[in-house]
Amino acid sequence: MTVRPVVRYPNRVLKGLAGPVGAVGGRERQLATDLVDTMYGSPGCVGLAAPQLGVASRAFALDVSVMKKPPAGNHGLVVLFDPELIIATGSDRKREGCMSVPDYTCDVRRAISVVVRGITPEGVPRVIEAEGFEARAFQHELDHLDGLLILDRVAAKADVFARKRYADKGKHLK
């Protein structure tokens, strides 16, 4: 098992457009193995995209079943090459972190349900329907292939709500 170092911002590979993988061969399968090993070898990590290993290729691994409370209906380990987001519906805001932007979390708005299509390491096309947290993980990894980080996706500032709470509290004064 090879846990490779995870690349951190401001490394430029994280801000570029990753290139298509095309035909899956030995090198691509090795990349898949490295993604999976590094993901499982990194505590709290539920997904990893090739640019995070310094590889500007459209590939990622994810597995949300490793969470303490695995989301119902999740697909376990998924590795896809040249993935595409086909359908995205709904909208929901939740906090996300990223191994390439450590010590930072942002509220990010994502679709609630997605359909993603890609090629498995065995070279087989696969279509996956994901919901909720798993759908969020797919969108986070897809973003990495387009050079987008959570800092590019920050939802409207969360503290608007915090402030409102304080303001409401004031109504009880007097």
Binding site: Y166, G170, K174
Partner: peptide, 12 residues
């Protein structure tokens, strides 16, 4: 503020 009859409006 409360004890002196003030009403807290916006805050950060």
């Amino acid at each position: 503020l409360q004890d002196r009859g003030g009403n807290l409006e916006d805050s950060a």
